[in-house]
């Protein structure tokens, strides 16, 4: 479609439209509700504007678990990708098996196996650890391990695709200058692959922020679990409607901020590509949809 509709092409208008839609939806749902349900909108306001200790600690857990697990995943992904394309057959086999197993089983199964399976058999009981003065509870450790291993399998494929996307001539040129495979990977191929990998990696981290909620199964009190427990007991008991709207708002906050950061990273990595990168629209526009900007 041509840009004959200036109303929707201004970035602010688009996000305002989406917000209006969200509010409208909430109102429709509320109006369709039972007359006997007592709406308590203070819950939403208080949870978002004046989050209590529980929410803040849940937020911190979600963030820290997400970041650490994603980092583990990226590191495993780089090694896994290099393993998948290695010349030695046993290395290739090991990497392929890792990817096949962790992509082929549900994350929930992996979490419960790593925490409960290893725990009851006594293989590893996940005792609390004290690192740098902070006590890291056993189930949090298990959650990070499970999430990290799982993410590593997906990152392996993403990194591998990124490496394969790089012209093989790059590796040849590096080798012809006397670089070993490892050096060429580190200095020439992986830095270029990074640019290809960042968009899907951003997507993965966006998912990770939300996937930590699965850790409810091993009683990790992260953001979703905190709201779930507030619904099950305490002063805000039995108000899932308001509580989970508040939870949704918090998650939107996290994922939106990540989106902004990701846009910045992509921009920095794109330096040197010349015209294409410099003509990119600003962060906010790209975040809230700038389809109609193209072709102006």
């Amino acid at each position: 479609m041509t840009s004959a509709h200036p109303g929707l092409s201004r970035p602010g208008t688009r996000s305002a439209a989406r917000l209006t839609g969200f509010v409208l939806l909430a109102l429709v749902l509320a109006a369709c509700g039972r007359s006997s349900y007592q709406y308590n909108w203070n819950i939403v306001v208080d949870s978002v504007i004046r989050p209590d200790r529980l929410i803040l600690s849940g937020l911190w857990l979600t963030l820290s678990i997400s970041v650490i697990s994603q980092l583990i995943g990226v590191i495993l992904g780089v090694f896994g990708a290099i393993g998948r394309i290695a010349r030695l057959a046993p290395v290739r086999w090991l990497a392929s098996f890792y990817v096949w197993f962790f992509r082929g089983t549900p994350l929930l199964v992996q979490i419960t196996f790593i925490f409960f399976g290893l725990g009851v058999t006594g293989v590893y009981r996940w005792p609390d650890l004290v690192l740098l003065g902070i006590t890291v509870s056993g189930n949090v450790q298990a959650g990070i391990v499970a999430l990290g291993l799982n993410e590593g399998a997906y990152m392996t494929e993403i990194v591998r695709a990124g490496i394969l996307a790089i012209d093989p001539g790059q590796m040849e040129a590096a080798k012809s200058l006397g670089m070993t495979y490892r050096k060429a990977m580190r200095r020439i191929v992986l830095p270029q692959a990074a640019r290809v990998i960042v968009p899907p990696l951003g997507n993965e981290f966006n998912n990770m922020l939300k996937t930590t909620s699965l850790l409810v199964i091993i009683s990790v009190p992260e953001l979703y679990v905190t709201f779930s427990r507030k619904n099950a007991s305490g002063p805000t008991v039995f108000h899932p409607f308001e509580l989970f709207i508040a939870a949704a708002i918090w998650y939107l906050l996290l994922t939106t901020i990540w989106g902004l950061i990701q846009a910045q990273i992509e921009r920095r990595l794109a330096r040197g590509t010349g015209a294409a990168a410099d003509a990119q629209p600003g962060m906010i526009r790209r975040l809230f949809g700038a389809q109609r900007e193209v072709g102006r």
């Binding site: 012209d167 001539g169 040129a173 590096a174 080798k175 012809s176 006397g178």
Partner: peptide, 19 residues
């Protein structure tokens, strides 16, 4: 790699490092 470092090569598609 050591031997290659004494042999230069110039490619048809240049293969310069874009980053």
């Amino acid at each position: 790699a050591r031997q290659r470092s004494e042999i230069g090569m110039v490619f048809q598609r240049f293969n310069l490092f874009p980053h």
